[in-house]
Simulated assay, not measured.
Amino acid sequence: MKKVSVFIVIVAVIFSNVLVSCEATKNANNTQKGAGIGAIGGALIGGIIGNNTGLGTAGGALIGAAIGGGTGALIGKNMDKQAREIETALPGAQVERVGEGIRLVLGENAVRFDTSKSTLTAAAKANLDKLVPVFNQYPDTNIQIFGYTDSTGSPEFNLRLSEQRAISVEKYLESKGLNMSRFKMVGMGIADPIASNDTPEGRSQNRRVEFAITANEKMVQDAQKQSGK
């Protein structure tokens, strides 16, 4: 499990030209522009932060949701424990503690998607089953699911496909008894590739989902009480 300091990340963002210049925007191709369409909530800001820190949109969303202070420290301890349990339950997943939350990357070794498909394989369902007990044990968390695709097909098609992948994961977890109100689904299309789209192996890695796990209002209120706020 990798930990990322909020302070270090924020400093890195400040010094890595977070504000996109007009020239860069003007030179962006249609594929790049299309990739960002449809991101909801804080996904756009999360993507800017994430791309400048190597944490992806999910990691950027976690940084943007940070509370800080004694409240944040207490939430962080809770997330430390949950992150360790996720690693134990699903060793093939990439688990990162970012700020006061958890970034969970479910790549081809955990939740694999075929090209142009959003259907969960039997292996993907089996791996998601391993996460259900952990999510049930920590009900006071919200889970944002980001769906991704490789670069095959048009940006518009990939955006819809990525949303469908995120929804497929949420629907399966809901079928296992998790409260759907905890989830928010975001389709990111071809954004935030974690491997080259020039090879079959790289494209397979990019067909994935990522989770951003954060404290819900109850956990925040409980932490505030404990910290004396």
Rank of each mutant, 00 (worst) to 15 (best):
E174M: 02
A124Q: 09
I102N: 10
R112W: 02
V111N: 08
I102G: 12
V169L: 01
P133H: 08
G92H: 05
S151D: 14
E96G: 02
V169M: 01
E87S: 15
G107E: 01
D150Y: 09
A126Q: 15
Q144K: 12
K130N: 05
V132M: 08
V105R: 13
S168N: 11
R103S: 10
L131C: 04
R97I: 12
F146H: 12
L161R: 08
L131T: 13
I167D: 04
P133C: 08
N136L: 13
E100I: 05
K171F: 00
L104I: 05
R97S: 07
D114A: 14
V105P: 00
K171V: 02
Y138E: 11
S162C: 02
A110E: 15
I143N: 07
G101E: 08
V98P: 12
L106W: 12
T121C: 01
E100H: 03
T149M: 11
G107N: 03
Q164M: 12
A122G: 01
E108A: 15
G92K: 08
L161Y: 04
D140T: 10
A124G: 14
K117A: 12
D114C: 00
E174K: 12
L106M: 15
F113V: 06
E163D: 14
I102A: 10
K117R: 10
N136Y: 04
R165Y: 02
D129C: 09
Y172N: 10
E170V: 06
N127R: 04
P133S: 08
E96D: 15
T88C: 03
D129I: 03
R165K: 09
A124E: 03
L106G: 11
K125F: 00
S118K: 10
V95F: 05
K130H: 08
A123M: 08
N142V: 07
L128D: 02
E96R: 14
F146I: 06
G147N: 05
I167G: 00
S162V: 01
F113E: 06
I145W: 06
V105E: 13
L159I: 06
I145Y: 03
L106D: 07
L90F: 06
V98F: 11
T149S: 14
T149E: 10
A93E: 06
G101Q: 08
A110P: 00
Q144H: 11
L159P: 00
E96L: 12
L159S: 15
R160F: 02
E156T: 13
I145A: 08
T152G: 08
G101P: 10
K125W: 00
D150H: 07
P139L: 09
P133Y: 07
A124R: 06
I102K: 07
A89T: 10
V98R: 10
F113K: 09
L131I: 12
E163V: 09
L90Y: 09
G147D: 06
L104A: 04
R103P: 01
S168D: 05
E100M: 05
N127F: 02
P155H: 09
S118Y: 13
